[in-house]
Simulated assay, not measured.
Amino acid sequence: MSSFWVFPGQGAQQSGMLHTLPNDPLIGECLREANDALNENVLDLDTPAALQSTRAVQLCLLIAGVACSRLLMAQGNTPDYVAGLSIGAYPAAVMAGALSFADAVRLVALRGELMQNAYPKGYGMTALIGLDQSTVEGLVEKIHNKDTPVYLANINADTQFVIAGSDQAMTDVAALAKAQGAAAAKRLAVSVPSHCELLNEPAQTLAQALADVSVQIPTLKYLSGSTARPIFNADKLRDDLAFNMCRVIDWRSTVQTAYERGARLQIELPPGTVLTGLARKVFEQGSAVAFQGARLDTLSALSREEERRHP
C-alpha cells in the first residue's frame, strides 16, 4: 500500500465541525472517550464563540481527525504514511499507534491553553501567496525587530508561505508583499504566533508534560511536519510533538517526501480541503482527496485500488 493520510492544522476549523461528523457508532464512541478524558462535553467546543479559543480549535481538530480515521480503518483501510500540520501531528501520532487518544486529548488541551495564554492578543499568522521563499524571507528580515517581531512560520508550497508575529509586523510585511506582486496576503483564523521562537517557553512546558506520557514506537510511518523525515524513535516523536509549535513547518517537503517514498494517494482528514489543494501539484501522478465531501465507499475504493497497484 502507498497511501498517505494527512491531518490539518489551525485555520481549517469550521463551526459545527463535530456536530457534522458522520452519524456512526465509532464517531459517538470517539466523542465519549474525549468527554471522559476532559471531563467535559466536547460538543460544546465547536460553536462560533467557542472556536475563538485556541484550546477549543485544537481539540476539535484532534477529535475530528481521529474519529474519521477510525471510520476509514473500520472499512479495512490503513495508510502507509501519516503526517499532520502543527496540531495535526497529534491525531497522526494517535493513528500511528504511538500515543493513546486519551493522552492526546489531555495534551492538546494543555497545548492550546499554553499557546493562547502566552499571546492572548495582538499576534497571529498571515498567509502570503504568489512570492518565492527568498522574497518572503527578505521581507520578513526588513520588518522583524524587537518591537515588531515576525517570522517565516510555514513553507506550504513553492509560492505559499505563512508568517507569524505581531499584528503590526504582519501588516507591514503584507503591505511589502503586495507591493512585490503577491497574489494575496490573508490573515488566518489563528490567534497565536505559531512555528517561531515566540513559543519556545510554552513548548518547554509541554515537553515536561510529555515526559510523563507513554509514547510508543509508531506502527505506521510517521512523517514529521517540521523535518519532513520519518520518525521511528519514541523519544524523537515525543520531541516532535512538544516542539512543533515553535519550529518552522515545512509541509511542502513533507508531502514531497511521502510522494518520493511511493505514496500515490493522499487522503486529508477533516476538516477542510486545504491540504488537498497543496498536494495536487506534487501528486500529479496520483490522487489527493479530502474526506470532507467524499463518500466513505469512494475513499475505500481508492485505497483498495492503490493497495492493489502497490502491494
Rank of each mutant, 00 (worst) to 15 (best):
V150Y: 08
A174L: 01
N156E: 12
M170K: 09
C196R: 09
N200Q: 14
A164R: 01
A182N: 03
E197G: 13
V192R: 03
A182P: 06
G181V: 11
G165S: 10
N200T: 15
K186D: 04
C196N: 08
N200L: 12
T171K: 13
G165D: 06
E201Y: 08
A175V: 00
L199A: 13
S191W: 06
V190F: 13
G181R: 07
P193E: 03
A164H: 00
I155G: 00
L198Q: 08
M170W: 00
D172L: 12
P202T: 04
A175W: 00
F161P: 04
L198F: 04
Y151P: 12
P149I: 09
S191Q: 08
H195E: 05
V173M: 00
T159A: 13
Q160W: 08
L188E: 09
S166H: 03
V150I: 15
G181Q: 06
D147V: 12
E201K: 10
A177S: 15
F161S: 06
N154E: 04
I155P: 00
L199I: 06
A185L: 02
L176W: 04
C196D: 03
N154Q: 11
L152F: 15
Q180S: 15
V150P: 02
V150L: 09
A185W: 03
G165I: 05
I163T: 04
A189T: 02
D158C: 03
A177G: 12
A169C: 09
Q160K: 14
H195T: 07
V192S: 03
G181Y: 08
A174Q: 02
V150F: 12
Y151T: 12
A184S: 13
I163L: 10
K186V: 15
K178V: 11
